[in-house]
Write a protein that binds this DNA or RNA. Sequence first.
DNA 1: CGTCATGTGTCATACCTAGTACACACTATG
DNA 2: CATAGTGTGTACTAGGTATGACACATGACG
Lengths: 117, 117
Amino acid sequence: MTQFGPAIRERRERLRRDDRRYSVRQVATRIGIEPAYLSKIERGEVAPPSEATTVRLAKELDQDPDVLLAMAGKVSGDLQEIIRKRPKLFAELIRQLKEAPDHAVLRVVREVRDGDW
Amino acid sequence: MTQFGPAIRERRERLRRDDRRYSVRQVATRIGIEPAYLSKIERGEVAPPSEATTVRLAKELDQDPDVLLAMAGKVSGDLQEIIRKRPKLFAELIRQLKEAPDHAVLRVVREVRDGDW
DNA sequence: CGTCATGTGTCATACCTAGTACACACTATG
DNA sequence: CATAGTGTGTACTAGGTATGACACATGACG
């Protein structure tokens, strides 16, 4: 699994090649944290930041928040809330899908989307 | 939503009617926490305990761990891990199912269980 | 009646989370 | 060459998490 910090650094530096506004300092300022803190995050010197900060960072770097949160070892609060409202149901479903191949899960997603319930 | 503490208390006292071994003290000792701490948990004087403690408590009181964790505002670590391994897929699925009625979700569960992938 | 168990109040604590503040050395640019 | 911007090291902290230790008053049991 790719580490959170390095992934961020790579992404930011890529963006920076075309746009000087993607420096540690400026990105940090835009998402409302200290530059030194972002630097440490990117080098993995500290643990990934809070969910809120991770999401702001994801948006800033035009990345999928759920993917970044996953790398940070977290699951989005809104997903957790959905699960908590019907814990038995969702726990069973998710454990059921643990070993299912991607295409099987996708099929379920599509079925539900087009479902006529 | 029922609160975590009171639900625990109620359940424990119910068990206690038939079995004197379900006192605050004895339950606490069996699951490895201080009696005073369990007392505070049951009265909601402190926040619900850690996931590990909650699960031990659930087993001790013969309750569904996922349900108790949900009341505690948490989602089981093993479910989170499943989601984190394929964040996009599961995020989409779960958000898709947010408004789906129970029977629709259950249908999906059954389909997957009997699925031929 | 003694003693054992019960629930709870008070106080203390170790560790974690999620950062801030500031200075310093290097680099690029006009 | 000045200066503006860059990344990073060191030091610090407010607030929360998850308990532990112990004493005390009450109630039940033999």
